[in-house]
């Protein structure tokens, strides 16, 4: 067992009325790690976060925090702080009192509180905002105050529940970088919840992909993106074309009635599998002599690339390319073997 594990979830299971909300949750979080729980709405990621924070109890299972099971510890005793989705800033207090709340509870001396608040405001780039009222702040400012309020208590672990959801795109991207930098410089473990896969890929050290209360895959962003374990992960992370096929033997796969070389092995001979090819990995070639042929149905300019939908005999391929093929033109498609990902079928 790795020495620097800070939280370990063991067999966490939660049933709500008759619905199984979490099944078989087993994973650990390392010190100073930026771990993201990623999944669609209702997959259970927020529930796990709330269980770690102490706001909900699992039906069974353990949460080991630095060696101790904290299942029965109330939230105010856990050295964990949360940044809530809607910020939950106290409307009847100004910025200073909001941030100082946790410190005042701990009964820290006045001078010390003042200094800590000043420093944290500097860190979130809101120096001088001490006397502002909450309602006078913009969304982005409120968000940063919420983060400041949590961080000023120097928790061992910071839980963030989709904190950037209410911000506009540009602000969101800025905050993503700021959060990542904050985490690195403070050396605090961040557990982050989001449904935005791009956000997860940008910020995380480790991603836990979830669906319907179960963990689908755990890995680094690169791993998950390049080697999705199943169709769900493939669909959820990045854009993908997922097509059914048969793997004849190691390194040889067939789809669209065409044989391709690939780099995957370890499957049964003639096993039915799913194949994932990223849109940016499909190369547009001339129609003559191409293995895979199709007709361009639509073209959309996306700035960075063109997105084209190309219809072949059995499939509608999504292709991202800087080469543009006009609508109704006939083209050929090719793909490098290392970009063909074979996945076990999800039963």
């Amino acid at each position: 067992m790795e020495k620097n594990i800070v939280i370990d979830l063991k067999n966490v299971y939660k049933k709500y009325d008759d619905v199984e909300v979490l099944k078989n949750i087993n994973f650990y979080i390392r010190k100073n790690e930026f771990l993201t729980l990623l999944g669609p709405s209702g997959c259970g990621k927020t529930t796990i976060l709330r269980i770690i924070g102490g706001f909900e109890q699992p039906t069974s299972g353990e949460i080991i925090f630095e060696g101790k099971n904290i299942i029965n510890m109330p939230p105010y005793e856990r050295p964990i702080n949360t940044v809530f989705q809607k910020y939950a800033l106290f409307p009847h207090m100004n910025v200073f009192d909001n941030i100082a709340f946790g410190l005042k509870i701990k009964k820290l001396p006045k001078k010390s509180i003042e200094e800590k608040v000043k420093n944290i405001l500097k860190m979130v780039n809101l120096s001088g905002f001490e006397n502002r009222s909450i309602e006078s702040l913009s969304g982005g400012q409120q968000q940063r105050i919420a983060i400041a309020r949590a961080l000023v208590n120097e928790p061992k672990v910071l839980l963030l529940d989709e904190p950037l959801g209410a911000l506009d795109l540009k602000l969101r991207k800025e905050m993503q970088m700021e959060l990542k930098n904050m985490q690195k410089s403070l050396g605090i473990t961040f557990i982050y919840v989001t449904h935005d896969q791009e956000e997860a890929l940008t910020m995380s050290d480790t991603i836990v992909v979830m669906d319907s209360g179960e963990i689908q895959q755990i890995g680094t962003p690169v791993d998950i993106y390049n080697e999705p374990k199943n169709a769900f992960v493939a669909k959820f992370i990045g854009e993908s074309n997922i097509i059914e096929g048969i793997i004849h033997e190691d390194f040889v796969v067939e789809f669209e009635n065409i044989i391709f070389d690939c780099v995957d092995s370890g499957f049964e001979k003639k096993e039915e599998i799913d194949i994932v090819i990223r849109p940016e990995d499909l190369i547009i070639e001339s129609f003559e002599g191409a293995k895979l042929k199709g007709k361009v149905i639509s073209v959309t300019f996306k700035g960075v690339h063109y997105e084209m939908l190309i219809e072949s005999d059995n499939f509608l391929w999504k292709v991202h390319s800087t080469t543009m093929a006009p609508v109704n033109s006939l083209v050929g498609l090719s793909v490098l073997p290392e970009n063909i990902h074979v996945m076990k079928k999800v039963i």
Binding site: Y76, I80, T82, A88, F90, G102
Partner: peptide, 27 residues
């Protein structure tokens, strides 16, 4: 009173009594 305010207060270390006197009562 938004329940998340109460949770935030607990998250920041407030006991049930402190949540009442500092958050619920003033609001």
């Amino acid at each position: 009173i938004d329940n998340s305010l109460i949770e935030a207060a607990e998250d920041l270390g407030a006991s049930k009594l402190e949540v009442f006197t500092r958050i619920i009562l003033p609001l």
